[in-house]
């Protein structure tokens, strides 16, 4: 190339020299280096690092281009290179978080807007049909009725608390859509979590069980849920996920109510519940508001039943106590898979 640019993929964990340069370049652009990023596509000119773009499990992060080269074609090559890198690792759909005023940069690189938290962050994906096709697939399960409820649960693992919430929600609605978070970043695998939910809800007649997706409580939409010490700052930690739900998923299924249990233990989940009331109910032009119904957690022996409590008991090997909090299939699974490893 006549511009003398050399592109190279580096793994910062095993290349401290390159990592140092990346950290410096990011700092000069006002960005923090995120150490969990596995790969960086780097561009060098006359040996000097002039641009980089990080890639971590389907999400592009830490994109920086040195001042003098901004507005040049380097950005398009950089994004092309990242796309091929992602493709080689099996990631087709890529997400990027950016400040809203930088979104235009990505719109020119084959990205399309999903949601924007005004003044804070925008989430984009690199396909014009990703969310559209997903919603079209959901729409097959749409039930026409007045009161359509939705529960989104990680169910890590499925407890009597989930059973209570889902049963009560189903009773108060014409139809209930239950989603199990798909991201495999929890103690219990997605497969196990889904199968337990299926087993436990099979007798509820007005319920559809859905697998989760990358558009709902996923690494892409809600990184702070899985990496509780990190993530974006302030309000926008949960806003992106909730706005996606309100703008795309709820309309596809005609959801009018979203049900959650009160959260006594986990700060992240508690914040998510509180933010839910704001982002789903606040009047907005982007989509109809969705009523948030918070149900008091069911208790056993005076303690609120929650999955985080079960995991805490599991870590302590307190199986007798767990038995009080979970239905039999969950308990059997715990005894089978986890009792020996504790």
């Amino acid at each position: 190339m006549s511009d003398g640019l050399e592109f190279l993929t580096v793994e910062p964990a095993s290349d401290p020299v390159a990592r140092r340069e990346i950290v410096d370049l990011l700092a000069s652009c006002g960005l923090d280096y995120e150490k969990q990023i596995e790969f960086f596509v780097t561009a060098r000119q006359e040996g000097r690092l002039v641009a980089c773009a990080g890639f971590e499990k389907g999400i592009i992060k830490d994109v920086a281009i040195c001042q003098t080269l901004r507005g040049s074609a380097i950005s398009l090559r950089l994004v092309s290179e990242v796309t091929y890198l992602a493709h080689s690792q099996g990631y087709q759909i890529l997400f990027v978080y950016t400040e809203p005023h930088n979104a235009d940069f990505f719109l020119g690189c084959g990205f399309y807007p999903l949601v924007e938290v005004p003044g804070q962050t925008a989430l984009l994906e690199n396909t014009p049909v990703g969310i559209k096709n997903y919603c079209a697939s959901l729409a097959h399960y749409k039930v026409e009725a007045d009161k359509i409820g939705c529960v989104v649960a990680n169910a890590n693992p499925f407890t009597l608390g989930h059973l209570y919430l889902i049963t009560e929600a189903a009773k108060s609605c014409d139809w209930l859509h239950l989603f199990i978070v798909k991201e495999d970043a929890s103690l219990f695998s997605y497969h196990d979590r889904f199968m337990l939910a299926k087993e436990m809800t099979k007798d509820i007649p007005n319920l559809t069980l859905h697998g989760g997706s990358k558009y709902m409580v996923s690494r892409a939409t809600f990184p702070a849920y899985f990496f509780k010490d990190k993530g974006m700052v302030g309000q926008c930690r949960t806003a992106v996920d909730l706005l996606l739900f309100r703008k795309y998923i709820a309309p596809a299924l005609g959801v009018t109510h979203r049900f959650v249990g009160t959260e006594p233990f986990c700060d992240t989940t508690r914040k998510y519940n509180n933010d839910m009331k704001f982002w789903l109910q606040e009047p907005s032009s982007i989509a109809h508001s969705i009523e948030v119904v918070e149900l008091e957690r069911t208790k056993r022996s005076g303690i609120a039943v929650s999955a985080s409590e079960v995991r805490r008991l599991l870590a302590g090997g307190n199986f007798e106590k767990i038995k009080e909090f979970v239905p039999k299939p969950t308990f059997d699974l715990i005894m089978n898979k986890y009792a020996t490893s504790v």
Binding site: L76, R77, S80, Y84, Q92
Partner: peptide, 18 residues
Amino acid sequence: QEALAGTLESSDLFVRVS
């Protein structure tokens, strides 16, 4: 299978087939 070709550079095109 999913496949890509091309680039996003000027006078080129990026093709994604799924």
